[in-house]
């Protein structure tokens, strides 16, 4: 493994959503991973697996009932609150984390369409964030906005428009521009293309890749679509029911993935190139996170499940170089 510097390190994070009646949803259940500088880590999983909650946990933008139970997240930021180097994000006060937001870590939201204020001009919203975060003059912000427009391929004149006057793709681009506007160290892209049609989705993905290359961005790319994730990420993390079931380098993913769930995802993935392989989905529904099944959480849907799968949780073990997986069947046999 290259001695690349880590920019973000997530260590055994547990995050629950409190429900009424003392119950809770274990949305993030002991997750560890890291992001290296200039590289992209992809998180893939079905909806409701907790991948977006990971993003919320990092930026601490969880709803009121979200509760971080344990774990640590370290982020390499400049100096903040007298700390430098890898900063423990959970140790920061609300005020301090506020400074990390968008300056250190910015985000491209799930449902970008709705993340713009409908009653304000798009340009103004981007300028606003730059001016608050970087304390720059209006003129400078305006200049920077034009540069951003070039990056995301929007005619700068259109920045005077309101969100509803934008197409879906343009809104997405604007949201990307907004994420880039303050020159953050890390971008979390949470399902950035979900609501778009396939052609626009493709074009946006190309643009993200371009930006990635050009700006040497560190990024966490979250999606339910394995093909998108694998297209853009250096490393892929597969989440199932609040846990990481497998992680490996993109290159080795399709060949070496061993976890039955990952294999299921790979098989259900429509290959854009290549032959029209059979689309074999994963039968069954993801479990409820408020009362997950005993043992391996995937066992009720797993075609290979054996006795122990129902009793004990599998260990998250290194399978090969940089390749981790949590499965009884694979590790034993």
């Amino acid at each position: 493994m290259n001695a690349k510097t880590k920019i973000l390190e997530v260590n055994g994070v547990v995050m629950h959503y409190r429900l009424s009646g003392g119950r809770s949803v274990r949305a993030v259940d002991g997750i560890s991973f890291s992001v290296e500088e200039g590289r992209t880590t992809g998180i893939v999983g079905e909806s409701g697996c907790g991948k977006s909650s990971v993003a919320g946990t990092i930026l601490r933008t969880l709803p009121d009932n979200g509760e971080i139970k344990s774990g640590k997240i370290y982020f390499k930021h400049g100096e903040i609150a007298g700390k430098s180097g890898m900063i423990d994000l959970f140790s920061l006060s609300e005020e301090e984390i506020q400074k990390i937001r968008w300056k250190g870590i910015s985000m491209i939201f799930q449902g970008a369409m709705n993340s713009l204020n409908p009653v304000r001009r798009v340009g103004d919203q981007i300028i606003e964030i730059m001016r608050y975060k970087d304390k720059i003059s209006k003129e400078e912000a305006q200049k920077r906005l034009e540069r951003l427009c070039n990056i995301v391929h929007i005619d700068p004149k259109r920045m005077r428009s309101y969100p509803h006057q934008f197409s879906g793709g343009m809104k997405q681009r604007a949201v990307i521009a907004m994420a880039l506007s303050t020159d953050p160290k890390l971008i979390i892209a949470d399902e950035p293309t979900t609501a778009l049609d396939l052609i626009t989705q493709d074009r946006i993905m190309e643009e993200i890749k371009e930006i990635q290359k050009e700006l040497k961005m560190s990024m966490i790319f979250i999606s339910h679509d394995l093909s998108l994730v694998s297209e853009i990420s250096d490393r892929v993390i597969v989440m199932y029911a609040g846990k990481i079931v497998e992680s490996c380098d993109k290159r080795s993913l399709f060949r070496e993935a061993v976890h039955p769930y990952t294999r299921g995802l790979i098989n259900s993935c429509p290959r854009i190139r290549g032959d029209k392989g059979k689309l074999s989905g994963i039968p069954g529904e993801p479990p409820s996170l408020s009362s997950p099944p005993k043992g391996c959480r995937f066992h009720p849907r797993c075609p290979y499940a054996i006795a122990i799968c129902r009793e004990e949780e599998p260990e998250y073990k290194e399978m090969g170089e940089g390749h981790f997986s949590a499965c009884w069947v694979v590790s034993d046999g």
């Binding site: 930026l59 933008t61 984390i97 506020q98 400074k99 990390i100 937001r101 968008w102 300056k103 910015s106 985000m107 939201f109 449902g111 709705n114 993340s115 713009l116 204020n117 409908p118 009653v119 304000r120 606003e128 964030i129 608050y132 975060k133 907004m178």
Partner: peptide, 26 residues
């Protein structure tokens, strides 16, 4: 509950700005 308010919060805009020009404005 709207996404743009959540988004504005995540952007790290000052509380008052989110309250007044995002939530309240709408």
């Amino acid at each position: 509950k709207e996404d743009y308010v959540e988004a504005a919060k995540a952007r790290g805009l000052p509380d008052k700005v989110v309250r007044d020009s995002y939530a309240a404005r709408n």
